[in-house]
Design a binder for these strands. Structure first.
Lengths: 153, 153
DNA sequence: TAATATCCTATCAACTTAGTAGGGTTCTAA
DNA sequence: TTAGAACCCTACTAAGTTGATAGGATATTA
């Protein structure tokens, strides 16, 4: 399961993305915390981490705040999850970006579990690395529209 | 990532399955611990948990030990992982067997992340719930054979 | 230069993980 | 029937992670 931290991060990113689209200016931590009902100080740490990893940029001083480090369609959910959670893989020996030899099996090439969990990690990575923040926001937008439309039927 | 506990469990199960096929009798904790280089007392707790969840059965007294609770082709890796790790899903709100409402999003039907992580959980579950212990062992067997064959080329 | 906002360090309680220790209970083979 | 093998159970522990909070230092800009 994803940690609370990662969930906060993903929520904050969607809020930031929407905000930026509408107002085209940085969003302060306080605004983000209030809009998303996120613990302010904890959020602060999360945003900083995302910034240090290139997902976000910040502007200090009056009128400052955080904004996306690159266009929303270039921010993949897989990247965000990896920054905050580490590997997507369920075993270190099947991770692409955080590979570590497996101490449990005798030999990687003949380990049946290795084959299985490689398959799992690949399917997960394929999905998360091909889905951008932009996509999430637009899907959400679509869903909200079609939901509110239902009231008129 | 899977916990060490789960990894030990999976390894123990493959060993048990192989042993049973060859000798058709229970395998003692001590034998398992030695063969798999697993910490004995920790393994003990793991086997007990698997037994309490129907994956294993045990026989007490001299000549006793653990054996599979049902045929190896009926023990799905997904089941084992769920017993030891809880949900396969990355978010509680997309779990089938451990569903919990999501406190982070306002509405589940309009949450873009919900849709995405549902897709991830489904692909993971499909793989892990369709792969049996028997499959793992036979794949491993195949791989070992083809590896040892290579020395003769 | 004062207000604003990020940045940084330290601290914390609660929980989880990966075990270990030690004995109690139950079964069964001899 | 009884000794020993093996399971079963409770308690404990050290180390690490999680989900925060507090307080101030630093940078920016109106």
């Amino acid at each position: 399961m994803l940690s609370q931290k990662t969930r906060y991060a993903l929520k904050a990113l969607t809020l930031l993305s929407d905000y930026q689209k509408e107002y085209d200016k940085p969003m302060s931590i306080l605004e983000l915390a209030e809009q998303g009902r996120l613990p302010q100080k904890f959020l602060e740490a999360i945003l900083l981490e995302l910034k240090n990893n290139g997902i976000l940029q910040s502007k200090k001083g009056k009128g400052g705040g955080y904004f996306l480090g690159r266009p929303a369609d270039g921010i993949m959910i897989g990247d965000v999850v990896r920054i905050l959670e580490g590997p997507l893989a369920l075993l270190p020996c099947v991770s692409q970006k955080f590979y570590k030899r497996c101490d449990n099996c005798i030999s990687e090439e003949t380990c049946g579990l290795h084959v299985l969990f490689k398959e799992v990690r690949d399917s997960t990575a394929t999905i998360l690395d091909s889905t951008s923040l932009e996509k999430i926001c637009s899907v959400q937008d679509q869903l909200e529209k079609s939901k509110s439309h239902m009231y008129f039927i």
